[in-house]
Simulated assay, not measured.
Amino acid sequence: MAEKSESLWTRPFLVALLGYFFLFMSVSLFFLLPLFLQRFNPSKSQIGLIMGIHSVMAIGVRPIFGRLIDEKGRRLISLAGILLLMFTVPLFHLVRDAGAFPLLLRALTGLGWGISMTATITMCSDLAPVERLAHSMGIVGVAGLIASALGPLLAEEVVRQFGFRWLFHLSFIFLLASFACIFLTRETARSLNKKNGRQEAMLKLEGLKPLIIFLMASLPLVHGAIRGAMVNFVALFSRSIGLEHVGPFFVTFSLAAILTRFWGGGLSDRYGRKKVIFPAALLIGLNVLFLSQVRNFWMLILAGFIGGFGQGLIFPALSTYVIDTLGRENKGFALSLYLSLFDAGMGLGSPFFGWLSDLFGYRAMYFLAGLTILIFNAFFTLKAPEPLKQLSNSKDS
């Protein structure tokens, strides 16, 4: 009973969480970079390439540095990634076209983001009580959601009042604040893994049956794809049915996800990962089916709320499922693998479901997307094991 009363909200956890929030704020300001690039009259494909290379680099680097996070420590790798961002962001002042130079800078920011984000999230989870891993992951996700909502709003106001020069200044200031927070946070002893952590992580993977590896990888990948289809096309879908205002959908989605993670982020810590993953993915799938039948504004708002509720439940449960399966001593590698799979799903799902919408329309596309995650969720629930040993042994990690 005493363990349940151990507080999540310790000073080290809050300082590290603040560091993650400032890091996310710095990167989210760049959502307005396409407006900066437009002054150079680029093609849409040029802008898409410059913006997209950031995510590609982040996805590619995470599994590599995930192992280093376990071997060298979270704090060191996080600070290294932030330093790379601090080196790169001021160079945007020198951009004079939409060619190779901004493409290189975005690649470097993707590299720094992929390194620092994974290490900082892992560090935050280390500073939480071990029996509240999923809850801590949910709270970290809330910080990211808030930053992703505030960042573009702040960026828009800064650009309107002071221009893009101060946007880059502000991004650097947030990076300084993030670096200070992480630098002042002491790393916990349990986050320092043995030097053979890479071999341990690979042995864990090799020891799993191919079916288990497939199931562990498929649901984050499919979830990312469905999330991409839901978010990236909802504005176009809304316009196609005569709904002009889609902003309230995103606000409702974010608020529902934030509130859910505060009260429900730790449900899988108490009841088991799969017992939360199944209803969360079921809710997401049914909601996407519902989205395919939206006819008016209030149905759209309801779809946003239900979707945010499901997203708020599934992220902490599914990410900690991967961590528990690979072992908490390999937390950095496991978390980087999960985030890479989710982001890859987002990246691959958007063009795939966009292609389906070209062929069959938005309603049919959302219907097929909903069926896809429902099928994978059923398969995962029936065949994937519950990592009970990890849950019961977490106190010793």
Rank of each mutant, 00 (worst) to 15 (best):
Y20P: 00
L203S: 11
A378E: 00
W355N: 04
R295C: 00
I213R: 14
G99T: 09
F22D: 02
Y366V: 04
N287P: 04
H223E: 09
S178E: 00
R328C: 05
L391M: 15
K209R: 11
L104C: 13
L382S: 08
L368R: 03
L145N: 11
S357M: 14
T185Y: 07
D126K: 10
G354A: 12
L282R: 08
G332A: 08
A384V: 08
E156T: 12
Y338D: 00
A303T: 08
S78R: 05
A281E: 09
L368K: 02
L68A: 04
M230L: 13
A334E: 10
A58C: 06
G141R: 02
F305Y: 02
H93R: 14
L35F: 15
V159M: 06
L105M: 09
L341M: 11
L368M: 12
L221R: 05
I306W: 01
A134F: 13
S350G: 03
K195P: 09
G207L: 06
M299G: 15
G73P: 03
K44C: 00
L83Q: 02
V246W: 01
A58Y: 10
V158S: 01
R74W: 07
N287G: 05
F87W: 13
R74E: 03
A303L: 05
G99I: 07
K204Q: 12
L84P: 00
K195S: 10
K204D: 03
L335R: 01
G308I: 11
L335Q: 09
T252A: 15
V288Q: 02
L337D: 00
L84I: 14
Q199M: 13
L208H: 02
L184W: 12
L267V: 06
F92W: 13
L348T: 07
Y20Q: 06
Q311Y: 15
Y271W: 10
F360C: 01
G266Y: 05
F22Q: 02
P316G: 07
L175A: 11
A201R: 10
F164G: 03
L85N: 10
I241K: 07
G349N: 05
L215N: 04
H135Y: 10
W355Q: 09
T381Y: 15
